[in-house]
Design a protein around this nucleic acid. Structure first.
Lengths: 218, 218
DNA sequence: TCGTGTGAAGACGTTCACAGCT
DNA sequence: AGCTGTGAACGTCTTCACACGA
């Protein structure tokens, strides 16, 4: 019995459900069925019920789930109850764009600092967040007790920066560098490789040319 | 029968292998074993052999794989033999950053045009690619025969833009909008949701000391 | 009746382990 | 000996289908 492990994929979908639920709550919906919510989230209703099953049972048979309560439970589970602080390292094109991007804040993260090898570029003028010299990073992390970092440095410097981050106590890294990062088991890394994501699409597009449907039915 | 379907996750990893192989080729390595390549790519050797198995059999037992040939075969399979042209729609913070980002080009994509509702912002000055009014998009796609699009418009406009893209003949979309997009079956969509990726990391950090997790493709 | 919760089945993906080639 | 290629075992995720509560 007890708290069973929630699969990573479920976590990802819980975030999606949470976003949908917030929209429903804004429209003063009180309950929602698995099929309605599943459709909004782009998944199969069974899958949704299974995912919610990991959190407990609070749906009402014949009716659906209470929107607000469910939203709360998911938020609780995802650990965003306490606005997580985040730092960003590497304020190049992508890094600067992410600093301007409101998406992280919207989901409850606060970007508390940014670091770069070159701390005084013109392009930083328009940013709302100060950009510090990267050598100050370790102390900053320790003093502020930051646990999360977004990494947008060039691939060739990624590993050394990661070493510093880990040593300073960072426990989770969202990396945009196209490299395999070496970290201790206690640190979670999520790699987002933009070029690879595009290649992925490209592959399936290529296969469009050939008529590939109906491979079974005579 | 013959040509068996290659799983999406394998495609993703093939891209990684390809990148590693290029590095090896630059260093004039002639052959590489599954264990060496697997280590560089951050996967299990069995997995790598299984993945390569989808492409045919050209390893030499007792020796390994020929670096250059393998690299060729993967490139062929991924369909990047012909430099795919891409357009980008939505030149906001993220869109502009991606236009400046060299990663797509480096992997063999050419961004041939960019579109936005507001085609003359100051911030476009420094871009190397012209930004056109979004109403010109359909004709552009048809004339140039573009099949791939990167979507970086606000979530609330994403679906309408997608409808236009699909109507103009786009077959693959890499979207950064946090929305479920409705498309015909013939169109491939890959959603990258930056906030969700960060939440994913955040969750595992909260759970003190759980192991890391490689990115997976939805 | 409607819609949840969940065993059971199925699809999918990964890893093991070893036969067989060089 | 060393390393590939692959059947088979294993593990994980998804979907089905239905009992049961409201």
């Amino acid at each position: 019995m007890e708290k069973q492990q929630i699969p990573g994929k479920t976590i990802y979908r819980l975030s999606i459900y949470h976003r949908c639920l917030r929209r429903l709550a804004e429209n003063d919906l009180e309950t929602v069925s698995s099929s309605a919510l599943a459709k909004a989230a782009g998944v199969n209703p069974s899958q949704l019920r299974r995912d919610l099953g990991y959190l407990g049972t609070f749906g009402t048979r014949g009716l659906g789930y209470p929107v607000v309560e469910l939203s709360e439970v998911i938020r609780e589970e995802l650990g965003r109850a306490h606005l997580q602080p985040v730092i960003l390292v590497g304020v190049g094109n992508l890094g600067a764009a992410l600093l301007r991007y409101r998406g992280f804040q919207k989901e409850g993260f606060e970007v508390v600092g940014a670091f770069d090898a070159v701390p005084n570029r013109e392009s930083y003028q328009s940013l709302e967040i100060p950009v510090y010299e990267v050598s100050l990073m370790g102390d900053f992390i320790r003093k502020q007790g930051v646990k999360l970092a977004v990494l947008t440095v060039p691939a060739e410097h990624a590993q050394e920066v990661v070493n510093d981050l880990v040593e300073a106590g960072i426990q989770g890294i969202l990396s945009f560098s196209p490299t395999i990062l070496q970290v201790p088991e206690t640190v979670t890394v999520n790699n987002v490789d933009l070029a690879l994501e595009l290649e992925q699409v490209s592959f399936f597009v290529k296969q469009e040319g050939v008529h590939s449907d109906l491979k079974e039915v005579p």
